[in-house]
Every structure is written in structure tokens, then in C-alpha cells.
């Protein structure tokens, strides 16, 4: 691994840990109940009792941020797990079997990718109704396409290799061939993609919650916190600043991890990257 990739890896890991730790241990770390309201302290700036201040209903912003990390982690990992599972299966089947199965799956991918960015997720949540489960469904409905395209491309490369031809000659069945011989060899780029996809899913969940289409009202979701902060920007900017920093830090962390993994797994970049560059 080059020095720059190592630096990215370390920074990404640090940001990732700074996110995972509160997400896992929020109940022990949060100084207050994230749902406890204290109207007398509404919009209070950061102070000793409330290190990041209080929101419009007087809830402790630090506690809500810590619990919000759980929601982001949950939605991010759930959406990416479902997307990866469907996408890997579709990509393996399309790439290995080819023919009409490949045509059908890849045209479906093309149609779904014709919806830019968040549009399809917004449309799906609009019909399914708000809520985190529906956010996961909406994000997965689009998210699998990236994995499917990637895995199909990898399978097309791998399946012409000698060891696959040898396994075919030995009479290995299609299912076993995909599971044992092809799947492990396409995992490296899938891990890179998963890292970027988690960043994307966390950002999308926050975007949907910001628009009022994600987490239910009152839930300590980072996007919803930002949306609430927007209305009190002039008198209490701290309500918006901290959730925004949290989202940016996490997205940055997973993007850097993705970059570092990409650099690590890509032998071409490996060889050409000069030491110290």
C-alpha cells in the first residue's frame, strides 16, 4: 500500500471509528435522554450541562447526535446489505449465464439508472409512506443496480480464465461454480463499492429525513435535526452546525475508506503510485 493510500486508510478508519463507537454505545455515552424535552432550555447554546446545546424543544443535541449515529448506521448497513445481496446475485447470474437472463437483468438496471440521484427513492417513499423501513426499501431498490453492473463486469472477466474452464471441464455445476469459484474472486471491487455505497446511503437517508420523508417526527435522525435547525438558523445556528458536521465526517470517512481500498486492491495503481506521492 502506498503512503498516500495508508494515510487515507488511517483517516478513513479514524472517522469510521468516531462514527461506529457512538452508534454502538449511544445509551452509555449520551449524557441525556435524546427524547427528553425541556422547553425552558429551548435553543440554549453549548454549555457545561449540554456540551452541544439544546434544540427547539430543549432536547440535548449531543445525545440526539449519538443516537442519530445509530439510525445512520442501521439504515446505511441495512440498505447496502440488501443492495449488495440482490446486486451480487443478479450480477453473478447475468454474467455467468448470459443470454436472455443477462439482457433482461441489465435492461432493468438501465431503466432504474435512468432516474437520477435521489429521484426514485423520493418517488418510492412518496408512495410507500415515510419511515425508516421504507427508506431502506427505497434505497435498496436503486442501490442493487451498481453492485449488479460491477459484479457482471467482473464475472465476464473471470469466467474466461483457465481455472474456470478447467472446473467446467471437470463437470462443476453452475451453482457451485458461481458460489465457490467465481464469487470469491469478484469480492474485492464489491468491498470498495460497499464502502462508497454506505456513504451514499447515509447521505440519502439524511436527505430524505431532511425533506420530511425519512425518519418519523421526533426521531433523532441527523437529516431531521438539520431540517429542524433550518427554521431557527438566525437565533440558534448550533442546532444546524453539529448534525451537518457529523454527516460530512461520516460520508468523508467512508469515501476515504473506499478510496484506500480501491488503491489497495488495484494492482495497476499499486505499481504506478510513486512512494510518498
Amino acid at each position: 500500500m502506498s503512503v498516500s493510500a495508508r494515510r487515507l486508510w488511517v483517516l478513513g478508519m479514524l472517522l469510521g471509528i468516531a462514527f461506529l463507537f457512538p452508534a454502538l454505545f449511544a445509551p452509555w455515552l449520551a449524557p441525556h435522554d435524546p427524547l427528553a424535552l425541556d422547553l425552558a432550555g429551548a435553543l440554549a447554546p453549548p454549555g457545561a450541562a449540554h456540551p452541544l446545546g439544546q434544540d427547539e424543544q430543549g432536547a440535548d443535541i449531543l445525545s440526539r447526535l449519538l443516537y442519530g449515529a445509530r439510525i445512520s448506521l442501521l439504515v446505511g448497513t441495512a440498505a447496502v446489505s440488501v443492495s449488495a445481496a440482490i446486486g451480487i446475485l443478479a450480477g453473478l447470474v447475468a454474467g455467468y449465464l448470459g443470454g436472455w437472463v443477462e439482457q433482461l437483468l441489465m435492461r432493468l438496471v438501465d431503466v432504474l439508472l435512468a432516474f437520477p440521484g435521489l429521484l426514485l427513492a423520493i418517488a418510492l417513499v412518496a408512495v410507500l409512506g415515510p419511515g425508516l423501513t421504507n427508506v431502506v426499501i427505497a434505497l435498496s431498490a436503486l442501490g442493487w443496480t451498481g453492485f449488479a453492473r460491477l459484479v457482471r463486469g467482473q464475472v465476464l472477466t473471470v469466467k474466461s480464465q483457465d481455472y474456470i474452464l478447467a472446473a467446467q471441464a471437470l463437470g462443476v455445476g453452475d451453482g457451485r461454480m458461481m458460489r465457490v469459484h467465481i464469487f470469491p474472486n469478484v469480492m474485492a471491487p464489491v468491498m470498495v463499492q460497499a464502502s462508497f455505497a454506505i456513504a451514499g446511503a447515509i447521505l440519502s437517508e439524511a436527505s430524505l429525513s431532511f425533506l420530511g420523508l425519512g425518519a418519523p417526527p421526533g426521531t433523532p435522525s441527523w437529516g431531521a435535526m438539520l431540517s429542524e435547525g433550518k427554521h431557527v438558523l438566525s437565533e440558534a445556528p448550533h442546532v444546524s452546525i453539529f448534525p451537518g458536521l457529523a454527516i460530512m465526517g461520516v460520508v468523508l470517512g467512508f469515501n476515504l475508506l473506499g478510496d484506500a481500498l480501491n488503491d489497495y486492491f488495484d494492482p495497476k495503481r499499486h505499481k504506478t503510485s510513486a512512494p510518498g506521492s
Binding site: A206, L233, S240
Partner: peptide, 18 residues
């Protein structure tokens, strides 16, 4: 470039307004 991609526009907008 790294920050520009990571910064959510629904945060950048309110910051600019602020």
C-alpha cells in the same frame, strides 16, 4: 474536492445563508 463531495447540500445551503 474531497470536502466538496462529502458536504451535504442541505447543510451547505443553510451555512451559506447563515
Amino acid at each position: 474536492a474531497v470536502l466538496g463531495v462529502a458536504i451535504p447540500n442541505f447543510w451547505l445551503g443553510p451555512l451559506l445563508v447563515l
